[in-house]
Design a protein around this nucleic acid. Structure first.
Lengths: 365, 365
DNA sequence: CTGAAAGCGCTAACAC
DNA sequence: GTGTTAGCGCTTTCAG
């Protein structure tokens, strides 16, 4: 005649079986307030024995904290930045007792708005977002967000008073360029992955996300500094799509005075260079040079290894979590724009034209 | 004299401002039951105007569904399988109105137990798990899980009556071997990433996770079928650590009759082969051959491209989500062990020793 | 078609 | 040191 009792045991089941009140059971299980250690032990034993698992939903509702963080990334976390960032965020959060709810926008602002709304509905305590676009949108305005703190990663959004954790891609790219210049390169290609561009173009789009903008500026700064003429630079803003980027690389290489080195703004672009080089039997670090951004095990393992502007991705994730949780647990933190340094890892993909000038097809002697 | 009203507007705020009862407001916002369309429109307008965002916590508590899925992956979603799997799961879930809560165990059973407990506390409607070990553990027993449905991916757990979505790595590896054999290879190395092994050993560990076990069996089956003697096979079970796997590769290649081809059980192992080959100036597809498992853009873009047993990762994720949601929304589905076919993608990393027997150092003429 | 009221499972005053 | 009780914000009978 026992009731079916299909669903999970609740705290009142525990309380009844332990012969105490709900309050005492709660105190025992959450270990707070004054409580007799004997009773507590007994209650916990009972809970364990009937397979009680607390209902965080109910608790969250009562205390107003879900111990959950929202993560809003753009499409591709099949990407040297986002996979590592995600992992470091999940790990850092867990270490501090938080879980993470993931959403991905497809670089689409409408999806992003939606994702953020959903996260608020689920009442995450805070969120980490990679903004889809460079222009500020109302879904990140305080009025929508309410009390929910947000920290931005990877990309800044200047119009907003919001903490962000990014990397110094300006200096990173500049360093990479200086490295190439010091190795004797004189003609440069720059393959810039640009969301929102259809196909490819050499015209600078009006707005670029901050990361890309910094890479562009860093490149330009170094070029100017070294007196490299615009005609010795091939810029291509390119949709992030293999067919298109490969065509762009091919076109770049087919120019009369083709670049000796291509700078790829991200790994998808580097992949295109690799592909085209492979098809044309060009050996990297000899027939063509390459530098890309964001290190990965593959770049290190290939022969030659690919020279790269490495960003401290794990650190970005960790700091973002830290700052976010700080604000959650002690509201009123100052907003900060944290910028982490990158590191140039020189491997074999950049030919040394100083030592071997004959590798430059334009070299006359 | 307006109250501060710091936190978010609730449904009663909406109701008051709209001059209706909570019930009507709820009906208007969730669009159910009988309600005058005029009233509904008005209520929704008011909600919008005061920036009302529904509290899913409260709703979940009432209706008993969180519209959230839990995902428990092992450590590395910096990995050609898990990054893509995660993305496809998040996408598939979102398409059906579910969010996903991510957790990662570090291939550690205690962490896994914990993760699952946490997900239950958060009352996810179901979960997708990549089990850490091959042996069944009580935290996946029905008693712990209660009503919460689970589907396993990547690895089967035979003792459990539970739906799983995996790939046919037995046939996949067998095909890969046949391919190598047809190209004239006679001496094989097999580098098996094995959790739980310290360092590396040629002795088969007692239990292997199902994926690895199938790869091992597929390899063996093809070897037996082709009459390849055990002495022509170098097996190494290897901890998943660069230093150790690279040492294992080096040792393999330093044997008197070194293999002409190495089969890597996963991409970390392939990376080790790449590294060692690079250090020794060995060109893949000529001086040494390589096949690995799980395709990635890198493998395709390198020169030569790496031949690979490609698994339908996105499909695994999608089907897992589909099956899980089916069980959530219509409990009582039959449990299924779904096994998806792999595909061998032949690229240039396997030398053709039939056409060019001289590439085999043991070749005498 | 709309309102009143109960209750999901939990914690935190407030009594005792 | 423990129990009573009032909600957290929502949906859903049940009346009207």
């Amino acid at each position: 005649m026992a009731e079916p009792k299909s669903s999970r045991p609740t705290i009142v089941d525990v309380a009844e079986k332990a012969g105490v009140s709900r309050a005492t059971a709660s105190r025992a299980l959450s270990n707070y307030g004054r409580i007799n250690q004997e009773t507590a032990k007994h209650v916990r034993a009972v809970a364990e024995s009937i397979g009680y698992i607390s209902n965080e939903l109910a608790r969250a509702m009562r205390v107003g904290k879900t111990k959950t963080l929202g993560l809003v990334v753009i499409a591709d976390f099949t990407n040297a930045f986002f996979d590592r960032a995600t992992k470091s965020i999940v790990d850092a959060a867990r270490a501090r007792g938080y879980q993470v709810l993931i959403t991905n926008t497809d670089e689409d602002i409408a999806v992003e708005r939606n994702a953020i709304e959903t996260l608020i509905e689920k009442r995450v305590d805070g969120m980490i977002v990679v903004p889809s676009t460079a222009v500020v949108h109302d879904h990140l305005e305080p009025r929508r967000l309410g009390e929910t703190p947000v920290v931005l990663i990877d990309r800044r959004l200047d119009g907003l008073r919001m903490t962000s954790v990014t990397t110094d891609d300006f200096i990173g790219t500049e360093e990479a360029m200086r490295h190439a210049i010091s190795l004797g390169h004189k003609r440069f290609g720059f393959l810039v992955a640009t969301a929102g561009v259809k196909g490819s173009t050499s015209e600078r789009p009006p707005v670029l996300i901050s990361t890309i903008e910094e890479r562009v500026n860093g490149f330009m700064n170094a070029a100017v500094e070294a007196g490299i003429k615009p005609r010795a630079q091939s810029w291509v803003y390119c949709q992030d799509d293999p067919t298109i980027s490969e065509a762009a690389v091919a076109k770049m290489l087919d120019q009369p005075k083709a670049p000796t080195i291509i700078m790829a703004s991200n790994n998808d672009m580097a992949l295109a260079v690799l592909k085209v080089a492979g098809n044309r039997q060009l050996t990297l670090g000899r027939d063509l040079s390459l530098i890309t951004v964001d290190d990965s095990q593959w770049l290190a393992a290939m022969s030659p290894g690919i020279t790269v502007v490495a960003r401290p991705v794990e650190l970005v994730g960790q700091i973002a979590v830290e700052k976010l949780i700080a604000e959650i647990e002690h509201p009123g933190q100052p907003t900060e724009k944290i910028v982490l340094p990158t590191e140039l890892i020189a491997r074999g993909s950049v030919a040394n034209l100083v030592l071997r000038p004959e590798l430059d097809p334009e070299y006359k002697e």
